[in-house]
């Protein structure tokens, strides 16, 4: 159990897929203009990551080494199709926001990367922890980024049609935050912050 928690926590901090491993960035920066879209994107990634990790680590003894990448991809594509059709059927407004980013989860490096680096060599139980940790680390970061961008870029924060917070009406939102350059620059700053935090954590652990 202790091992489970350690693997889970690694995904959140020192092996965070976005800020440390720097994989799966494309969708993060593109989707993070809105809080609700980011939230559902995070859930979709957690689902695909955990399910594919479980399936791959279950079959890891039967998957031949030479063709493992195509096999991983097919497993991942199957789960992504499930999410794609599920969202299209039950959450059409969310699907309209996320659009192509759902099918592109297939090539999201986080999922293939974890399949290759973790699930293929570890037990099912630990792979679940890894999937949850990595997925949650991803979700937290994308939600933080989206909260900041939506709140300061549009002046208010919406979630499922309800306004959570809105800034005073005199506030003039800087449009650059919602555009592509804003995402890059903000992510750079966020990464610098999280690096400081990780240094702090590792120093304390020693």
């Amino acid at each position: 159990m202790r091992e489970w928690i350690r693997v889970f926590k690694d995904g959140l901090s020192i092996e965070n897929p976005l800020t440390v491993l720097m994989i799966g960035l494309c969708a993060t920066l593109a989707v993070s203009t809105q809080l609700q879209g980011s939230f559902f994107m995070g859930i979709a990634v957690i689902f695909v990551l955990v399910m594919s990790n479980v399936l791959i680590s279950m079959f890891r003894k039967f998957i031949p080494d030479e063709v493992r990448i195509p096999i991983f991809i097919v497993i991942i594509a199957a789960f992504v199709t499930i999410v794609d059709l599920f969202m299209k059927a039950f959450f059409p407004p969310i699907y309209a926001i996320l659009g192509i980013w759902i099918p592109l989860i297939v090539v999201n490096c986080i999922i293939l990367g974890r399949a290759e680096a973790f699930a293929y060599t570890n037990t099912v139980w630990l792979s679940i922890a890894d999937g949850f940790g990595m997925g949650l680390g991803y979700t937290i970061l994308i939600v933080v980024l989206a909260t900041f961008r939506e709140l300061f870029g549009t002046g208010k924060l919406m979630f499922l049609g309800a306004t959570l917070i809105s800034l005073p009406s005199g506030y003039k939102p800087p449009g650059i935050l919602m555009l592509f350059p804003g995402a890059f620059i903000l992510f750079g700053l966020l990464q610098a912050l999280s690096r400081k935090y990780n240094e702090h954590v590792t120093r304390k652990a020693r």
């Binding site: 650059i176 350059p181 995402a183 890059f184 990464q191």
Partner: peptide
């Protein structure tokens, strides 16, 4: 110091994408 490496690369990429905007 704390921006060295990747964070700075992102900020540079932001400026480059400003040109594309």
């Amino acid at each position: 110091e704390s921006l060295k490496g990747n964070p700075m690369s992102f900020i540079t990429a932001g400026l480059l994408s400003l040109a594309y905007v």
